[in-house]
Simulated assay, not measured.
Amino acid sequence: MTLLDDRRPSDTGFRMHRRYEITVSGGLGGALQAAELLRDCGLPVRDFSVEVRDGVPYSSLFATMAMTVGEAPGFADRMLAHPMILAVDPG
């Protein structure tokens, strides 16, 4: 006997790890504010690193987060709503 299930998996179910590069302004202060936003967004953060360089106007955060298919599209929009966030790129 074979069972076929044509239903799509629930968007609230399986969490997949997704890596993002988040570009911020404001040096270390901007990077710390972005880190707080990540903490407050409620998504599990698996890996996190920050690259801040003297004399460079932008900093980069690299984060791997676990999110469902339904949570992924709105993540970048929520982050970009803050003025210190310049770009959110999947990577």
Rank of each mutant, 00 (worst) to 15 (best):
58 Y>F: 14
88 V>T: 06
46 R>N: 12
36 E>I: 08
54 D>H: 08
91 G>S: 05
6 D>A: 11
54 D>K: 01
61 L>W: 03
59 S>R: 04
85 I>Y: 04
28 L>Q: 15
90 P>E: 14
70 G>H: 07
65 M>I: 09
2 T>R: 15
11 D>E: 15
89 D>R: 03
14 F>E: 13
15 R>D: 07
33 Q>E: 15
38 L>E: 05
76 A>E: 12
79 M>H: 01
41 C>R: 09
43 L>N: 02
45 V>R: 06
16 M>W: 10
35 A>G: 12
59 S>W: 03
71 E>L: 01
79 M>Y: 07
34 A>W: 08
6 D>K: 10
50 V>T: 10
79 M>E: 07
4 L>P: 12
46 R>E: 15
50 V>N: 04
75 F>Y: 11
16 M>K: 06
88 V>C: 05
32 L>E: 09
25 S>V: 11
60 S>K: 13
48 F>T: 03
61 L>G: 04
42 G>Q: 04
33 Q>M: 11
45 V>M: 13
56 V>S: 08
84 M>Q: 14
22 I>L: 08
29 G>C: 03
28 L>M: 15
15 R>I: 03
54 D>Q: 05
14 F>L: 09
79 M>A: 06
62 F>E: 08
22 I>W: 03
27 G>F: 07
82 H>P: 01
8 R>T: 12
83 P>K: 02
38 L>G: 10
85 I>G: 04
90 P>T: 02
56 V>P: 05
46 R>P: 00
45 V>T: 13
32 L>G: 01
51 E>S: 10
16 M>I: 06
31 A>P: 09
28 L>I: 07
20 Y>P: 00
42 G>E: 02
11 D>Y: 10
74 G>V: 02
40 D>H: 03
53 R>T: 05
76 A>H: 06
89 D>F: 00
21 E>L: 13
48 F>H: 02
57 P>C: 07
80 L>E: 10
85 I>V: 13
30 G>A: 13
38 L>M: 11
57 P>H: 10
4 L>K: 14
7 R>H: 12
85 I>T: 05
78 R>H: 14
55 G>N: 09
27 G>V: 06
88 V>G: 05
75 F>D: 05
23 T>R: 12
53 R>E: 13
14 F>Y: 09
22 I>P: 06
37 L>Y: 08
14 F>R: 06
61 L>I: 04
74 G>F: 08
59 S>N: 11
77 D>M: 09
41 C>E: 10
38 L>D: 14
85 I>Q: 03
90 P>W: 00
10 S>D: 15
84 M>V: 05
62 F>W: 04
75 F>M: 13
37 L>M: 14
59 S>I: 05
22 I>E: 04
43 L>I: 01
31 A>N: 07
13 G>L: 15
8 R>Y: 15
25 S>F: 06
60 S>T: 14
70 G>L: 08
22 I>C: 10
39 R>Q: 12
84 M>I: 10
37 L>V: 02
65 M>V: 13
90 P>F: 00
57 P>A: 15
14 F>G: 01
60 S>P: 00
49 S>P: 04
24 V>T: 11
37 L>F: 09
79 M>P: 03
68 T>P: 00
